[in-house]
Design a protein around this nucleic acid. Structure first.
Lengths: 248, 248
DNA sequence: CCTTCTTAAATGTCAGACATATAAAAGTTA
DNA sequence: TAACTTTTATATGTCTGACATTTAAGAAGG
């Protein structure tokens, strides 16, 4: 950790960068304690509030955790997949909404990535993953389900499929693609008929995964993608029609 | 934005969550100005430093930007794909190193995801993407290249392939998988022979993409994955041997 | 009308203080 | 001696009030 800064405006950002680099480069190990806030303040020649702002930046990225008390301080945090999950989903959702990503583009990305998992999941899925998929299918066929609950169940189903690949890196990456897309999916209104169709597709998909048939699973996801996109098109058309009628 | 907090220890985290929810839910629009720090302090009934710590947390996630001066303040920031890129890569790299993810697992995830892009890229790649791929192949065949530079060029090549799919969501997701894996890839020492082999594989891959042959591109990536893994195995074996010799 | 000066509002930074949590050391008692 | 209690030191969490700096808009002057 060097201290240069000189004429930087936003010292806390500079200090955060400096410490972050030390963590990423491995200069600071997991669970290692950082110097106390007072010591950091002296080292960087800034005040304690400024150091604290820098530490909060790092905490926001789950790079450190803090403990109060006598042996307390800031410690390099072991970044777990679960920790990165939430941020990943939030970021993906914001990216989609703020950049006006079309349903088609998001859908394409999501299914392309998911299809990458299908063959692996067909090989490795445990009974547990399969049971989750079946349970979610069952929930999706319940009549009184709200559109949002249906969507949530859909996400749970696909997540089980992805997790079935048994590769935490894949699961992490897919979190953003699948869960982050949920807000977009929530725009769709699922009629009884479309729900029945989706349950049907999901069932074939689950069957394929159960039979270790990666090719069928992949093909089924392609069908599901096409159907999902057609549903979105329907919704858009209906909305356009509603706007037209209103203006008459 | 409600104020409850009650007995929360870590007010800045609570406040950051509160504002973050307002942004994610769309309650606050892009480029909308947040209340001034003083006003936020009054609203949440905390001091200004505490508010500032909360704002720095949000800034660390690129959710807000701040401007100084008379009309300054904190503004909801439009999260761009480029902004999320760096964080994505850093997070992925840290996840791999801190969770002792094996080369095989990371490699499998990376190539599975990349293969998801191959068919799309074969259809849509522009001349630009192709030119980048060719240029990187050329660089990789230069003799005096360091292992790190070779790796960097490899990343650039694959990134061009992914970008060829023309789907920013895919490109964003793959950034983590491909670039985040670079530290792991840097462990490999590339001999002249293995470099020649990789250049060869890359060339066939580029040819396939040029010919809009998605199937061949996909197959070629599978070959490349297998070869990459075999290289890693070689490195591990040599290291194990070195350790044995040392202990004799 | 244009330029320059002033002013006000906001963030950026600082210093010093107190509150609180926590583990280890010191003290106390059975 | 052993177990429990109290004290103490150290760290983060928070507050107050102040000053520095940046910046846009209004005021003053040519």
């Amino acid at each position: 950790m060097k201290s240069d800064k000189s004429h930087h405006s936003d010292l806390s950002a500079y200090i955060a960068d400096d410490i972050r680099n030390a963590i990423v480069s491995g200069e600071l190990d997991v669970d290692q304690r950082l110097p106390s806030e007072t010591e950091l303040a002296e080292h960087f020649e800034v005040s304690r509030p400024t150091v604290r702002e820098a530490l909060k930046r790092l905490a926001a990225q789950s790079l450190i955790r803090t403990q109060r008390g006598a042996t307390g301080g800031a410690f390099v945090r072991k970044l777990r997949f679960e920790d990165a999950y939430d941020t990943q989903v939030t970021t993906a959702a914001l990216l989609l909404s703020m950049n006006a990503v079309s349903f088609d583009v998001a859908c394409e990305a999501r299914f392309a990535l998911e299809r990458a998992c299908a063959p692996l999941s067909s090989t490795r899925r445990t009974a547990d993953h399969l049971a989750t998929m079946r349970a979610e299918i069952h929930r999706q066929s319940q009549p009184g389900l709200s559109d949002e609950a249906f969507c949530a169940s859909d996400v749970a189903f696909h997540r089980a499929l992805v997790d079935g690949a048994g590769n935490p890196v894949l699961s992490f990456q897919l979190a953003g693609a699948v869960e982050g897309m949920q807000p977009l999916m929530n725009m769709i209104t699922f009629t009884a008929r479309s729900r029945a169709r989706i349950v049907e597709l999901h069932t074939v998909l689950a069957d394929a995964v159960e039979d270790h048939d990666g090719h069928l699973a992949d093909a089924q996801l392609a069908v599901l993608e096409e159907y999902t996109r057609s549903l979105a098109v329907d919704v858009m058309e209906q909305r356009a029609k509603a706007v037209l009628q209103k203006s008459e």
